[in-house]
Computed example of a mutant assay.
Amino acid sequence: MWLLLPFVLLPIIEIALFIQVGGVIGVLPTILLVLLSAVLGVAVMRRQGALAMLDMQRAMQEFRDPTRPMAHGALIMLAGGLMVVPGLFTSALGLLLLIPPLRDLVLRQMGKRVRVAGAAYRGREGDFMSDVPPGYGRRRGDGVIDGEYSVQDDTPAPIREGLTDQAQKPGNSGWTRH
């Protein structure tokens, strides 16, 4: 129900704003305002999106945390997208998201609601799989892996039975018997 609410309220708000603004400045200026907002939104997405990407790359090259530039870049792209959507309310929201202190406020509010769930490595030095549960790639037992090998300086005349496939078919890697 809560997810459906924005899809019902947003068109009503946009229509009401079109009527109010169109009544004050006229129909043609209102349409031009919406078109100008869309063009400005595309320009913002191109320019600011590229700058945010450069800022993120710079943060990674300087070994800084890239999450802040990524989050700001995402909000800038959202702002540009809101400006492209035809409507005065969405354009106003997009313009507000272009203000850096307001983006910081939005990110802080979003950060309060984010809950991180994940795993951390807590192994002994030199044992990078100390906390991996059995069955997830850790070898148990004596650690011996049986295998066969042969040293070949020249290509052997006959192919030894059991080591490789006799005939290589297209798509056959030779690692398994078919």
Rank of each mutant, 00 (worst) to 15 (best):
V44E: 00
V44F: 05
V44N: 01
R46E: 07
R46K: 14
R47E: 00
R47F: 01
A52R: 02
M53N: 06
D55W: 00
Q57N: 11
A59C: 11
R64L: 10
T67S: 11
A71G: 14
H72N: 15
H72L: 07
A74N: 11
L78I: 14
A79L: 07
G81I: 05
V85D: 03
P86I: 07
G87A: 10
L88G: 12
F89D: 04
F89K: 06
T90Q: 13
T90Y: 06
S91K: 02
G94Q: 10
L97I: 10
L97P: 10
L98N: 00
L98R: 01
L98Q: 02
P100G: 06
P101Y: 05
L102S: 06
L102V: 13
D104M: 09
L107P: 03
L107Q: 03
R108F: 10
K112L: 10
R115V: 11
V116K: 05
G118T: 14
A119G: 08
A120N: 04
M129D: 11
P133T: 00
P134D: 01
Y136D: 03
R138Y: 01
R138Q: 05
I145C: 07
G147V: 00
Y149F: 15
S150T: 15
V151R: 08
V151S: 05
D154P: 02
P156Q: 11
P156E: 09
A157K: 15
A157F: 13
E161N: 12
G162T: 00
L163P: 00
L163G: 01
Q166A: 14
P170N: 13
G171I: 08
